[in-house]
Amino acid sequence: GCWSIEHVEQYLGTDELPKNDLITYLQKNADAAFLRHWKLTGTNKSIRKNRNCSQLIAAYKDFCEHGT
């Protein structure tokens, strides 16, 4: 299931919640338009490089609020 937004804000980028895991989750569960909008298409590695934690948190919040 979903992590809470508080959990993501607190732990994203740590061993508790690697950016990797959040990106994988969104790529698996969000639709193509969402991924394009948040620039989460492409390889996990390129996304990790190009999107910082606050951008990923914003995307995750949007996903939780509007889910697909």
Rank of each mutant, 00 (worst) to 15 (best):
Glu16Val: 14
Asp15His: 14
Thr68Val: 12
Asn20Ser: 14
Ala58Met: 11
Cys64Gly: 05
Tyr60Phe: 08
Ala32Trp: 10
Thr14Leu: 04
Gly67Pro: 08
Ser46Met: 09
Thr43Cys: 06
Tyr60Thr: 01
Ser54Cys: 11
Asp31His: 12
Ala32Glu: 14
Ala32Ile: 13
Trp38Asn: 06
Phe34Arg: 02
Asn52Lys: 11
Lys49Asp: 10
Leu26Val: 04
Ile47Arg: 05
Tyr25Ser: 02
Asp62Lys: 09
Leu17Trp: 00
Arg48Gln: 12
His7Phe: 11
Leu12Phe: 02
Leu56His: 01
Thr14Gly: 06
Cys64Thr: 10
Glu9Pro: 00
Glu6Phe: 06
Tyr11Lys: 15
Tyr25Lys: 02
Trp3Met: 06
Leu17Tyr: 02
Lys45Cys: 07
Glu9Val: 11
Trp3His: 04
Tyr11Asn: 14
Asn29Trp: 09
Glu6Tyr: 04
Leu22Gln: 02
Ala33Pro: 13
Glu6Ala: 13
Cys53Gly: 06
Thr24Trp: 07
Asn29Pro: 00
Ala58Ser: 12
Cys53Lys: 09
Thr24Ala: 13
Asp15Thr: 14
Lys19Ala: 08
Cys64Met: 15
Ala32Gln: 12
Phe34Ala: 02
Thr68Lys: 15
Phe34Ile: 03
Ile47Tyr: 04
Glu16Cys: 11
Asn44Val: 12
Leu26Pro: 01
Ser54Asn: 09
Ala59Ile: 14
Lys28Met: 09
Leu22Met: 12
Cys2Arg: 15
Cys64Phe: 10
Glu6Ser: 09
Asn52Tyr: 02
Asn50Gln: 12
Pro18Leu: 05
Leu17Lys: 01
Ile47Asn: 05
Lys49Val: 06
Arg36Met: 11
His37Thr: 15
Glu6Thr: 10
Leu22Val: 14
Gly42Thr: 05
Ser46Gly: 08
Asn29Gln: 09
Gly1Ala: 07
Asn29His: 14
Glu9Leu: 06
Asn29Arg: 08
Ile5Lys: 10
Thr14Asn: 03
Ser4Phe: 02
Asp31Glu: 10
Val8Leu: 10
Thr68Ser: 11
Ile23Met: 03
Ser4Gln: 06
Ala59Pro: 02
Ile57Gln: 09
Val8Ala: 03
Asp31Tyr: 04
Ala58Glu: 13
Lys39Ser: 09
Gln55Cys: 07
Trp3Arg: 03
Thr41Gln: 15
His66Ile: 11
Ser46Lys: 15
Gly42Arg: 07
Lys28Ala: 10
Trp3Ser: 02
Ala33Thr: 13
Ala32Gly: 09
Pro18Tyr: 07
Lys61Pro: 00
Cys53Gln: 06
Ile5Glu: 05
Arg48Ser: 09
Leu22Pro: 00
Asp21Pro: 03
Phe63Cys: 02
Ile47Gln: 06
Lys45Asp: 08
Ala59Glu: 00
Thr43Gln: 09
Phe63Leu: 06
Pro18Asn: 07
Asn52Gln: 07
Tyr25Ile: 03
Leu56Arg: 00
Tyr11Leu: 10
Ser54Leu: 12
Trp38Arg: 03
His37Cys: 05
Glu65Gly: 14
Asn52Asp: 05
Glu6Met: 09
Asp21Gly: 08
Glu9Ala: 13
Lys45Tyr: 06
Leu26Glu: 00
His37Pro: 02
Ser4Leu: 05
Asp21Tyr: 04
Ala59Gln: 00
Glu9Trp: 04
Lys19Met: 08
Tyr60Val: 00
Ile47Gly: 07
Ser54Ile: 11
His66Asn: 15
Cys2Ala: 12
Thr14Val: 02
Asn52Phe: 03
Ser54Glu: 11
Asp62His: 15
Thr24Asn: 07
Cys53Ala: 07
Trp38Tyr: 08
Tyr25His: 10
Val8Glu: 01
Asn44Leu: 14
Ile23Ser: 01
Trp3Lys: 04
Cys53Glu: 05
Glu6Asn: 09
Trp3Asp: 03
Ile57Val: 09
His66Gln: 12
Asn20Tyr: 11
Leu17Ser: 02
Gly13Arg: 01
Glu6Leu: 04
Thr14Ser: 12
Gln10Gly: 06
Leu56Thr: 01
Thr41Ile: 12
Glu65Ala: 14
Ser46Val: 08
Ser54Gly: 11
Thr14Lys: 13
Leu12Met: 04
Trp3Ala: 02
Gln55Gly: 06
Tyr25Asp: 00
Arg51Ala: 08
Leu22Glu: 01
Asn44Arg: 13
Cys2Ile: 12
Thr14Arg: 08
Ile57Lys: 14
Leu17Gly: 01
Gly42Ile: 05
Thr68Met: 15
Ser46Pro: 04
Lys61Ile: 11
Phe63Gln: 02
Gly1Met: 14
Thr41Ser: 11
Arg48Asp: 07
Lys39Phe: 04
Gly67Lys: 13
Gly42Phe: 04
Asn29Gly: 04
Ile5Asn: 05
Ser4Cys: 07
Asp62Gly: 10
Glu65Ser: 14
Gly67Phe: 11
Leu17Gln: 02
